[in-house]
Amino acid sequence: MIRYVDGVTISRIACALPKQQLSISEYAPNLFDEKSAKRMAKGTGFSKLRIAPEEVTTADLCAVAAERVLGGIDRSRIGSLVFVTQTPDYTVPATSHVLQDRLHLGNDVLCLDINEGCSGWVTGLYTATLLCQTTDAPVCLLAGDTPSKTTALDDRATRSIFGDAGTATLIVPGKDRLPFLFKSYGERPDAILLANYYQYRQEPSKTGVGSLFVSLDGGAIMDFSLDEVPAAIEKFLEAEQLTKEDVSVYACHQANKLILNSLADKLGVVREKVPFTSGEIGNESSASIPLVLQAEEGIADLSRVLCCGFGVGLSIGICMADFTKTEFLGVVEI
């Protein structure tokens, strides 16, 4: 099902990254020596990871990016704040409330935390554009994660790919019409899983349900990335009566380089059209698509961008937009 939102504009995008950049042998010397780190990085494409200090949270990164997109804006006009993350500062209350106060948005704001990861920016964009449309007021969409805080110190799979990042996107009333497609495959939660405290309390375990660390099944994610994801992209293009060549850039979730290259091959599009730009950041969960767009700004044609988030859920979020009028405000390092 294609869903449309009319009367909006993606006005501004800003990103924030931790200053600290580590190779995986520096980050996880207990798991990788220089040789094995080099081999792993060649495969995943992640030669360095951005890792936030213990005291820096996802909300901190997103707040810094938000300050950029809110610059010069009358903050009392912001009607809604959407915060997409799986690493909130708090489980209770929703961290978006704390951010509303921190960003001086006033009290007439709908605050919403959305628990979504790899596909989360697209989910957040759909929600934010709908809120913008119904209220005729600007919406601040924050998306990011600090997955480094959820990885087990002895897990090669997660300690070699995840990086921390935060982003902010400002949606304002405008003239664009955005098409969206969402897919959910909730029968496969184990592909990427992080249990809750009560599950841990019932049955503590080292991985999977009952573990307090994130676990991932690389094989299951690869299957998903090469079957359901290209099928969803093809369905979206068909519904929109577009060919694969009509898309100027496929701004995809930065799962890893092997997945993105394989996805491009499976789709039958040149790899350059599915850019992997996070080699010195890491897999940034819901922050990935704004970071790809930021990296490609001024380089690629951003007039017909297909954004595709895919992963944890498992889930897929696709939308198509023209970013040529969007103001890209850069990457702030903290």
Binding site: G218, G219, D223, L226, D227
Partner: peptide
């Protein structure tokens, strides 16, 4: 584990096969 995932990708993209993990 990296080669394992890479093999699954190669089987899918080059041979069109979804292999049993």
């Amino acid at each position: 584990s990296l080669a394992f995932v890479s093999f699954i990708a190669m089987a899918n993209t080059a041979a069109g096969k979804k292999v049993d993990h």
